[in-house]
């Protein structure tokens, strides 16, 4: 009896002493260790509120569902097949592309040139910077409501001002004309974010040693050349980072268009996120909207990966 249990205990003990180190070895080889605990809180929140919703969206995209009634029909890839032949969806992609390119181009030019002007021994620099940054702090809702009023064809500030200075011919139906609506919204977006780009560019410019500029100046380079040959190449990493920020903003665009034009007239200013929203909430097509969301998420993921790659390149190049 006594002998047996001792053997049993010894076997258990030796099993543990064999198995545990094996687990340890395995764990060590594959770096399974407590360090992951540092990531777990973030991962938990992220899984709950980002990953799980994304998975549900993928699931919903295989159903025909109005989003209201509990009844839903599995239709496999039916929604995706419909997407491919949906001109309004294609138009929203196009609009989003225009949105991204136009906004980013304008923000790059405005942001850099303002920052370059600010990057000197200016007494009022903080004031200028704060003034330019002010719009960034204003919420998208507020910005859209305020600009919606400015763009009002009859009583809006923009048309009234144009008429007052005798440029009445330029007065336009900024949000009601399909040729203008998207660009009017883009202009608001550019106004909203220029300050952020200026501030970030300025920070980048300030890391350029003064001696470098002075040396170039002594070598006879004029201001224009100094900008093109020194400043712009040296802020390349900042530019690359801003490109990523700009792309994030473009894919996420929703509030401003939602309030300014609701995507109209007739889809002329509808971007992808707004199309998803309209389909799901206004047009009672939750299943189809989910399929569109999935496509949107895939596009977003591809852009993210591509840009991070490109960025690495720019960063190492600089």
């Amino acid at each position: 009896m006594h002998h047996d249990s001792a053997v049993g205990m010894r076997t258990a003990g030796s099993a543990a002493s064999v198995v545990w180190p094996a687990i340890c070895r395995f764990a060590r080889r594959h770096e399974i260790n407590g360090n992951v605990l540092y990531v777990l809180p973030a991962l938990g929140v992220y899984l709950l509120f980002v990953a799980w919703p994304v998975i549900s969206v993928v699931r919903d995209s295989f159903y025909d569902w109005d989003g209201i009634r509990p009844r839903r029909t599995f239709i496999g890839l039916g929604n995706y097949a419909e997407l491919l032949a949906d001109p309004i969806f294609l138009r929203s992609i196009w609009n989003n592309l225009v949105w991204g390119i136009a906004s980013i181009a304008a923000l790059l030019v405005l942001g850099f040139s303002m920052a370059y002007l600010l990057n000197g021994k200016l007494r009022a620099r903080d004031a200028y910077r704060a003034a330019l940054f002010l719009p960034v702090t204003v919420s998208g809702v507020v910005v859209a409501i305020a600009w919606g009023f400015i763009y009002h064809p009859e009583i809006g500030l923009l048309n009234s001002a144009l008429r007052t200075v005798g440029l009445g011919k330029l007065a336009a139906v900024w949000l009601g004309d399909p040729r203008l609506a998207l660009y009017s919204a883009i202009a608001v977006n550019v106004w909203h974010y220029t300050g952020a780009w200026v501030v970030i560019y300025l920070a980048g410019l300030q890391t350029i040693p003064n001696e470098l500029m002075e040396a170039a100046s002594i070598d006879g380079a004029n201001a224009w050349q100094r900008m093109w040959r020194i400043a712009i190449p040296l802020v390349k990493p900042t530019t690359a980072a801003l490109l990523i920020l700009g792309a994030i903003g473009a894919v996420r665009t929703f509030e401003i268009v939602y309030i300014l034009t609701q995507g109209g007239p007739y889809h002329a200013s509808e971007v992808m996120a707004l199309r998803v929203y309209n389909l799901a909430f206004m047009l009672h097509r939750a299943g189809y909207a989910s399929a569109l969301s999935v496509v949107l998420l895939v596009i977003a993921a591809v852009i993210t990966v591509l840009q991070l790659r490109l960025y690495r390149g720019a960063h190492q190049g600089a």
């Binding site: 545990w20 180190p21 687990i23 340890c24 764990a27 060590r28 399974i32 260790n33 407590g34 360090n35 992951v36 605990l37 777990l40 938990g44 899984l47 709950l48």
Partner: peptide, 19 residues
């Protein structure tokens, strides 16, 4: 088993099970 105790292992498993 450097930097990996049983307690941590149990904690991790618990967290994963919780999710």
């Amino acid at each position: 088993c450097a930097r990996f105790t049983r307690r941590q292992f149990v904690g991790m498993t618990g967290a994963v099970a919780g999710f």
